[in-house]
Each structure stands twice: as C-alpha cells, then as structure tokens.
Amino acid sequence: MAILSVENATVLFDAPDGGTVSALDRVSVRVEPGSFVVALGSSGCGKTTLLNLMAGFLAPTSGRVTHGDHPVLGPGAERGVVFQNDALLPWLNVIDNVAFGLRLRGMPRKERRERARAMLDLVGLAGFADHQVWQISGGMRQRVGLARALAADPEFLLMDEPLGALDAMTREQMQELLLDLWARTGKGIFLITHGIEEAVLLATRLVIMSPRPGRVTAELDLEFGREAAAETSARRVKSDAAFVSAREQVRDLVFANAQV
C-alpha cells in the first residue's frame, strides 16, 4: 500500500483586510499504511487545512501532496473523511447516510444496508438506524459520520476532531474502537484533536502545530496506541507511569509553543 504524503506545503488564504493568511507554512507530514498520525494544536493553527490538503479538497499554494506515486488532485474514495461538523445528508435517515458511499458504488440496497447496520453496531448506534439525522444528538451524529467513512472501507481515514462532541465515557469507548479498528485493518489514520491525552494515547506519530503561520513545531513517535490495542484497555495504559510522563512532556511542548 502507498504512502499519503504532504511535502513542504504552504497554503495562503486571502484575509479580509486585503492581505494573506498563512494557514500552513512549509508543512510536511507522512501518513504510512498502518500508522496513526495525530495532529495536535490550538484553534486556527491549520489542522483542518492540512486535512483538506490530504483529502484533496484544497490544493496547496506551493508544495506537493501525493498518494504513492500519484499527485492528489481531488478527493477520492480511497481517502475517507470524518468531518468536524459531521456533514451528514439530512434528507437521508441514519442508515442510508452510513450506506451512502456503498450506494455510490452501485451496491444493491439490501447488501449495503446490511453492511451499514454492522457499522452502526460497531459505533454503538444499533438502535438508531431508522432515525432521522436531526433526531439524534451531536455526539451520535459524529459517530454516524465515522460509521459512514468506515462503511466505505477506505485505505486512509482522515478525521477532523471525530470525538470532539462526545461525553467522557463514550469518548473512551470510541478511542478503543478506533484503536481496535486500526490494529485489525492496518489502515493509515490521520486524526485531529484538541485533547492532549487522546493524542498521546492514539498516536504512533504525534505532530504538534502552532498558529500564524501554521507550522509543525514538534514531532514524536509514540507506542501507547499499539499497547492499548493489544490489551484492549485504554484506561490501564493511561495510568501507566510512562504514559503520564509522555503526556506531561507533550503538554510542555504544546504550552511552550503557546507562549511564543
């Protein structure tokens, strides 16, 4: 399987005052198959912009985005996306939203619903298949968005704060689910979060960013995700001394940036 890579990418936006905003400044990130890359950074540091580059929604002002040997020129089903504000289709009910990607491929209705049902089961929404999307909570909608991306079985999963609107308990369950999925399928994952603990738990590679201009200020290789996936208990890993010290180290790095 091929590597998804952003090389030396700069993204400039027009600012309201007539100047330009440097949303990303010479940023490079590689997502290898089987790796779990997490981007951590304060609001406005360009995380979503970086994800948009990988997804192909946006072309860099300069630099390159490649998938294997090919340049990324637009979105594609091999790079599944979970959006910051779910982006579900309100005219479809929950299960048809989850099955949407399969429908686009022409999979027969019965088959795709079966698969969608299994995905809903996985994210803990088995009882909500026939609900309308406006009848479920924000956290549930995020999980429907996750199920929708998973159902399409992409090579890479790009997730923009997929667990942001979840309560602490569901959030922990979803972290374990993500780790389990990742360990079993070997997909390459790129995930954005504001949670330091979440980042340290999930990442095999942690990318710390800072704003104005959006830059990568530190990168770390971590192992807790594999450990937690093997033990299927995120709680235990989080209380390990090694985890706690790594978490504090990352906290220092994040706050060191914030001071500058």
């Binding site: 979105p75 089903a77 504000n85 289709l89 005219w91 949407f100 686009l104 929708r148």
Partner: peptide, 28 residues
C-alpha cells in the same frame, strides 16, 4: 453546503452523482 459536497466526493461520488444526490435534494 460545501462540506456535504466534499463528503460525497470523498466517498467516491462522480460529478453527476453529486448533482443528483446532494445538490438537487439540498436545493429542494
């Protein structure tokens, strides 16, 4: 909504599918 169109495209929708399954219902 731009994001809905992007969501469909990242699920593999062709241009025609985006118009038929996202734009048309969205404009209804």
């Amino acid at each position: 909504d731009r994001e809905r169109i992007n969501a469909a495209r990242s699920l593999g929708a062709s241009r025609g599918q985006v118009v038929r399954l996202v734009v048309l219902p969205g404009a209804l």
